[in-house]
């Protein structure tokens, strides 16, 4: 009983790690305040769910989910060069709203607010992942792979250019870097992994509705990125695990379920706010926020 509960939280933590480290790539490493991360996640989740329901194999669904999310990541970064940094936050947040509206209203495709039910658990090379314990293994492997790829990006000279854009974009341009292309790549790569995370979530939860794209749900991941420390992937992983477990005791205190969700948001957001004020480098970050 407790083990099953633990496994279900660990699965969510692993999916959270993928989402958070990919968000870190844009926010922490490139300095792009991307508030549309959950839109990419939802695009991935729905793409994957629809394909899986149509009978396509797991590897195809998860890759298509990532690629389609990446495509939207590229699309959303088209005006990135002309707008001020804080407008990007607004544009990406607006994008999140649009995706939510489309998921809710394109009923022929998404089944609207009723959502998509009966998403099959994946099968791969003859393995069946319908057991949560097996599924945890699959998610953990993909989370590890995502982490390593993003780590590889950030420690490579490519990541160094991303960081230079975060620190001083004009100086990076003056050294000859095509910062527009770089920012687009960062957004695309970040969206790809968000799409992958969405795909895994759809497979895990087996039932999907538009609330996965709700902008409110972004706050835990934004909190993880800032609390873990901008520019620190290790900190992000630790924060993702801690913050997934942190509000769990609320479940046992006996709050009505409608309040638990809101209370959880308050805890995350309050934690984020206190970190911003009192420990702006986060717990593991090296990067100053100024």
């Amino acid at each position: 009983m407790f083990l099953a509960y633990l496994i279900s939280i660990l699965i969510l933590a692993a999916i959270g790690i993928i989402l958070a480290v990919s968000l870190q790539l844009t926010v922490g490493f490139t300095g792009l305040l991307n508030l549309g991360h959950l839109a990419f996640y939802a695009i991935g989740a729905y793409t994957s769910a629809l394909l899986a329901l149509a009978g396509y194999p797991f590897w195809f669904c998860i890759l298509t989910a990532g690629v389609l999310a990446m495509f939207f990541g590229f699309l959303i970064s088209l005006p990135i060069n002309k707008i001020k940094k804080d407008y990007l936050a607004l544009a990406t947040m607006g994008f999140s709203f649009v995706v939510y509206a489309v998921l809710l209203n394109w009923t022929d495709l998404t089944n609207g607010p009723l959502g998509l039910a009966g998403i099959p658990r994946p099968q791969l090379f003859g393995f069946d992942f319908s057991q949560n314990s097996n599924f945890l293994l699959l998610v953990a492997i993909i989370a590890l792979a995502s982490y390593l790829i993003i780590k590889l990006i950030t420690i490579s000279p490519f990541g160094r250019v991303l960081e230079s854009i975060r620190d001083n974009e004009l100086a990076a341009k003056i050294l000859g870097k095509n910062t527009f292309k770089m920012k687009m790549c960062a957004m695309g790569a970040s969206a790809f992994f968000a799409g992958v995370a969405g795909s895994l979530y759809a497979y895990y939860i087996t039932y999907l509705d538009p609330s996965s794209a709700d902008i409110m749900q972004l706050i835990p991941f934004l909190a993880i990125v800032i609390i873990g420390g901008l520019g620190s992937l290790e900190g992000t992983v630790v924060a993702a695990i801690v913050l997934t477990f942190l509000p769990e005791p609320l479940r046992f205190i006996g709050f009505p379920s409608s309040i638990i969700g809101a209370a959880r948001q308050v805890i995350y957001a309050l934690f984020l706010l206190l970190i911003l004020i009192f420990k702006p480098k986060g717990f593991y970050g090296k990067v100053k926020l100024e």
């Binding site: 160094r160 620190d167 001083n168 100086a171 095509n178 090296k286």
Partner: peptide, 24 residues
Amino acid sequence: SSLFDNLTVENNLFLAFDNEDTKF
């Protein structure tokens, strides 16, 4: 000053050589 403050001195200099580092 237009240095990349969070990067090391060495990395500030490595960035200047060429644009091979912008190839993903």
